[in-house]
């Protein structure tokens, strides 16, 4: 590991000052420390922000404000999240292991690197995310877990977070702070598609700090779930995952939220499928048609063509389960 300096920020302004001097924010360390040890990342200075904003509080308009330092475990355990946003609790519990969830923070989960095994292979593989312009060995390599939507010639890695897929479906809003002030971003706009700059995962400005994630009030969220399909039953990244919420009135879809994980460089909000479903009869045919439309632009690599049908079937099955339609 390359030597670095370490500081623990006692408040937000101190964190911002340390970042302005070149410090990199550190949460639970489950991704960044790993990447540092593998010599993929070499920050010269770390700023521990785990002591900031660890509250989960209801907002005046009926939503929930989640401090960026809240651990994954604490968020999944919170009674309000379990009762009113089950898709979020389920997504978190489907991710990593209990030990890692106890360490990992909400802010860190959002900012974990979009990555693949070739990104880690410093000695043996080319990776445009690691060294821009050198090429991508994943594209012609073993790419079973890689992207089918929104990828580029430069990068086919996927964003591995489960939590973010649920947050994308829930219209979560990310609260940011920097020396020049504060701003908010929809979670769906935080992460980037790779394009020709796969080394940049998010739209954050240098030194900008995630302070909180806000869940808007949404009655639909209480009827939601998360399904993750993976190569082993637990402790594995998603091949495909689906976060979904649906409201059905008089047999018709009055509202729906859908997002996919494991398919793209960012959590994938399935807006096209949602649009197709609103107002339609809640039927297996309608769910399948919406899934077909969402995956219409999917491009398979050598090893991951199965993901396209898998994503369609998983979307259809999850919607059917939530809507009480026989599959």
């Amino acid at each position: 590991m390359t030597p670095f300096s370490f500081n623990r920020a006692t408040d937000q302004s101190e964190a911002l000052q340390l970042a302005e001097r070149g410090g990199r924010y550190l949460g639970g360390g489950t991704n960044l420390v790993d990447l540092m040890r593998e010599t993929v990342e070499h920050p010269a200075a770390l700023v521990d922000v785990t002591g900031l904003s660890r509250d989960i509080a209801e907002t005046p308009d009926g939503g929930v404000m989640i401090g960026a330092g809240v651990t994954n475990s604490a968020l999944a355990a919170h009674p309000t999240i379990r009762a009113r946003y089950p898709v979020l609790a389920r997504a978190i519990l489907a991710g990593a292991s209990a030990q890692i969830r106890n360490m990992a923070t909400v802010g860190g989960n959002l900012l974990q690197r979009t990555r693949c095994t070739y990104f880690y292979d410093v000695e043996g593989s080319r990776c445009n995310k690691r060294r821009p312009g050198e090429g991508c060995d994943a594209r012609g390599g073993f790419n079973r877990i890689h992207a089918i939507l929104g990828a580029s010639d430069a990068c086919v890695a996927t964003h591995p977070s489960d939590m973010c897929v649920a947050l994308a479906a829930l219209d979560a809003v990310v609260h940011l702070s920097s020396a020049s002030g504060t701003r908010t971003l929809p979670l769906t706009e935080l992460h980037r598609l790779p394009g020709d700059q796969p080394q940049i995962d998010t739209v954050l400005h240098p030194g900008e700090l995630i302070t909180a994630v806000e869940l808007p009030a949404a009655s639909i969220a209480a009827h939601s779930t998360y399904r993750k399909v993976r190569d082993r039953a637990s402790y594995a990244f998603a091949l495909v995952s689906v976060a979904a919420a649906i409201a059905v009135e008089d047999g018709r879809v009055s509202d729906v939220r859908l997002a996919l994980g494991g398919v793209a460089h960012k959590p994938w909000r399935a807006s096209r499928a949602e649009e197709m479903l609103r107002g339609k009869a809640a039927s297996l045919d309608a769910f399948r048609a919406a899934a077909e439309a969402e995956l219409a632009d999917a491009v398979p690599l050598n090893d991951n063509g199965f993901k396209i049908e898998l994503a369609k079937r998983t979307m259809t099955a999850v919607l059917a389960e939530l809507a009480g339609v026989d599959a």
């Binding site: 360390g29 420390v33 785990t50 360490m103």
Partner: peptide, 26 residues
Amino acid sequence: NQGACGACTVLVDGERIISCLALAVQ
């Protein structure tokens, strides 16, 4: 030593973590 196996699990204030990815100074 990369958070994948759990052999290094210890308890911090009663909660389990993997000590390999934990910087001691934290």
